[in-house]
């Protein structure tokens, strides 16, 4: 079994008196899609930001491919798509990708080659030289995905990547994520669309009030809770904690 590439080890994070994540442990291996589920305020974004090195855990550890998530080595091996990801509005997608490609120390020729490949796989051909401020939500998300995978990182952390997308765009993105799994990437993504997680994830972690309530494949969780759908399973688990989901 391959080594886990994204690891949270008893990681906690507090903001003042608010405990956003409490002793959270999870790991994602190469060729695996892990869905972090939970309602708003459950701590999903904080957990992903710990892995992206944007936040340091109050206690515990966050590692990417064996490196502390705060280090440049970890960041170089990570593709992070935040929930509020925007694009440099006055630049074109090609300029955005060129900037990040150079930040990730790719050569000019390599960047051109990868941009051409991503333009095909993410249907960016017609928009590469338009300013980002004029793109639609779906187009911007596709550019953001291209930016996330441009340096071909082994770990992808995606925070609610399908938020605000229509059915077609969501499906396109899910297919792309599956493709990345096939290429051996470790994919960790958060969502509160339970049906989407059911369709896509190899494993799921239910997060509630900063704590991991349950972890396993969708089938295992349904069996564990005795419920027919993930939504019913989650409601049952949240009820068990005595709090509203």
């Amino acid at each position: 079994m391959p080594e886990p590439l994204a690891v949270l080890d008893s990681a906690s994070k507090s903001f003042g008196t608010v405990r956003a994540v409490v002793a959270l442990s999870l790991s994602v291996r190469g060729g695996e899609i892990y869905g972090l589920l939970g309602p708003n305020g459950a701590g999903k974004t904080t957990a992903l930001r710990l892995l992206a090195g944007l936040l340091a855990p109050t206690s515990g550890r966050a590692h990417i491919a064996g490196h502390d998530a705060k280090t440049a080595a970890a960041k170089g091996r990570l593709g992070f798509l935040g929930g509020s990801t925007g694009l440099f509005a006055r630049l074109t997608p090609r300029e955005v990708l060129d900037y990040f490609g150079q930040i990730y120390n790719l050569g000019r020729k390599e960047i051109s080659r990868r941009v051409a490949g991503l333009a095909t796989s993410l249907a960016l051909q017609g928009i590469l030289d338009r300013r980002c401020e004029g793109l639609s939500t779906g187009e911007r998300q596709r550019v953001s995905i291209a930016r996330t995978v441009l340096h071909d990182p082994p770990v992808l952390v995606l925070d609610e990547p399908t938020g605000g997308l229509d059915v077609l765009a969501s499906r396109f993105l899910r297919d792309f994520v599956r493709g990345e799994r096939e290429r051996g990437k470790a994919v960790l993504f958060s969502t509160h669309y339970l049906a989407e997680a059911d369709l896509l994830c190899d494993r799921i972690g239910f997060l509630h009030q900063g704590r991991l309530l349950c972890e396993g494949s969708p089938a295992e969780i349904r069996a564990h809770t005795g419920k027919g759908t993930l939504e019913e399973a989650f409601l049952a688990l949240a009820d068990g904690c005595g709090g509203p989901p």
Binding site: G76, T85, F88, S144
Partner: peptide, 14 residues
């Protein structure tokens, strides 16, 4: 405000 800060900070730039 444009939401590009997170992206930049998660990249390996000092």
């Amino acid at each position: 405000e444009r939401g590009t800060l997170e992206t930049v900070l998660s990249s390996p730039i000092r």
